[in-house]
Amino acid sequence: MTLPVPPSTEIILRNSIATVRDVLLPAVGDDEWAKFNAGLLEGALQYALESLSEDRAGSHRQHLAEALGGLADRVKTEGDASLQLALEIESPFEAASAVLIWVQNNPGTLADDLQQVLHAELFAQLDEELKAAMPIMGAFQRGMRGDL
């Protein structure tokens, strides 16, 4: 073993960002397409770096499953057969999709309550992902403005 402690992914990404920003981006000159890509690459690496510390996909899946689980008793007593089947779907994202389509097709108090619970969880996830995507989104917006 000549490298008992390899560089961490975080270090590699952090240093790659610095290289793209300080070496490659200034070197592309007036090439519009190359400059656009170099700027986006910096944003993409930053997005990857900031996603390293947490499993957001796993967390979203777990929290949505918990929200659906909290609806089970109500659906069992008040829901029709199609709604009950929706809650039995294994994937929480597919189950939530089926429940929310049911909500749109069956307006009423039960639909409103189901929507409120699922929207609270899904909008929180949406906001979290929007925040996480800010580095790559910012680079894209700057690139579209020709501001890199």
Partner: peptide, 10 residues
């Protein structure tokens, strides 16, 4: 290309 990542996410 990284523009696809930007469009796919943000």
């Amino acid at each position: 290309a990284p523009n696809l990542l930007a469009i796919a996410t943000g």
